[in-house]
């Protein structure tokens, strides 16, 4: 009874905020109605906050543990979201086959660990490279020939590619899930909080990859070329950037990260199957949009927001809300700021 009540209060509170944010110009005009609304909002906020405080203070350690797990999960979403956002930034394409690249990474990691007997970190690199290769091949055969085609045609091709890869995956790997051999089963203790070793490893590896990406994009020549193409493709050509190669490179780097995400998720949730790319792919796409698509820090922010809210919702409300929260957040944030949290508030320029 109580959880639903607290959640409902919170939802009404958020909805009111959204309404107010959308109607900036009209509400303050009438002092009585704005007072009335202000009063209701404060009441709702206190009610919702009270509920959450009670729930959290009942077991603080659990709250922190779940938040940290949320960050760990969110960092994986962020890793996938980066691929969406980078590709979008450079070719204005939502690469729906990206979730399948992540799936390929997971299977490459699986076979690396099992059939080839690689140690984990070696399998990680193997998964990344395999996924990157797959990403570049998809770009070559499916998107490159459509470089000058209307955007809708490319989008539909991307959806087709996604379905194709799922089905080829089922043909090759079989549709029965496989279980990834357990890795990192230890526990870490930080203060009084117990943390699964696997979740910590996921976060650490992801963090390192993001630092590497940041370095690559900011300081290296191919990284700068990527930024240049995404900001002004013609101008990039005029200074001598090879645009085709830069686009391939973007797919390569994005897929590298998705491949890492695939094997990293498999050490926390060890069931892998050919359709596993669908949900995380969608959520990572949502993360990219929430953060502001085309903006690299936005993808990281969006991924973390979704990961943390998903984990907290599962922990405090119900796991059946888990998949809904990402899309709920998407709707809310787009209502308030259509270009995403870090998005620049400009009309789309083509």
């Amino acid at each position: 009874m109580q959880p639903v009540f607290g959640f409902a209060l919170f939802a009404v509170f958020v909805a009111l905020i959204v309404v107010l944010a959308r109607n900036k110009k009209r509400f303050p005009a009438n002092p009585i109605s704005s007072f009335f609304f202000g009063f209701i909002i404060v009441l709702l906020a206190i009610g919702a906050a009270n509920y959450f405080m009670v729930a959290i203070s009942a077991n603080r350690l659990y709250f922190w543990q779940q938040t940290i797990y949320g960050v760990s999960l969110g960092s994986v979403y962020a890793l996938i979201a980066l691929g969406y956002t980078m590709v979008y930034g450079i070719v204005r394409l939502i690469n729906f086959a990206h979730g399948e690249i992540y799936m390929i990474g997971a299977y490459a990691g699986f076979f690396g660990v099992t059939s080839l007997g690689f140690p984990f970190y070696f399998a990680l690199i193997f998964a990344m490279l395999t996924a990157a290769l797959a990403g570049v091949i998809v770009e070559r055969i499916a998107y490159k020939p459509l470089r000058k085609a209307p955007r809708l045609a490319v989008l539909i091709t991307a959806i087709g590619m996604s379905l194709l890869l799922q089905n080829v995956g089922q043909k090759i790997f079989g549709s029965i899930p496989r279980s990834f051999p357990r890795q990192f089963t230890g526990l870490y203790r930080i203060g009084e909080i117990n943390l699964d070793q696997s979740r910590v490893i996921v976060f650490a590896v992801t963090f390192l990859l993001m630092v590497a990406l940041q370095y690559f994009v900011t300081f290296t020549k191919p990284g700068k070329a990527m930024r240049a193409v995404s900001q002004d493709r013609d101008a990039a050509q005029m200074v001598g950037v090879n645009v085709d190669r830069t686009i391939s490179l973007t797919f390569f780097v994005g897929s590298l990260l998705a491949g890492a995400a695939g094997i990293l998720v498999a050490i926390v949730f060890p069931q892998i199957r050919p359709t596993m790319g669908l949900m995380p792919g969608l959520k990572a796409f949502v993360a990219a949009v929430i953060g502001g698509i085309g903006i690299i820090p936005g993808a990281v922010l969006g991924g973390l927001i979704i990961g943390v809210s998903e984990n907290l919702v599962t922990a405090y409300i119900s796991s059946s809300w888990r998949d809904a929260i990402a899309f709920g957040l998407l709707i809310l944030i787009l209502l308030v700021k259509p270009s995403g949290i870090l998005g620049r508030n400009t009309r789309e320029k083509v």
Partner: peptide
């Protein structure tokens, strides 16, 4: 129209 890279 210059076409500088605006975010650099």
């Amino acid at each position: 129209g210059r076409k500088v890279f605006p975010q650099m």
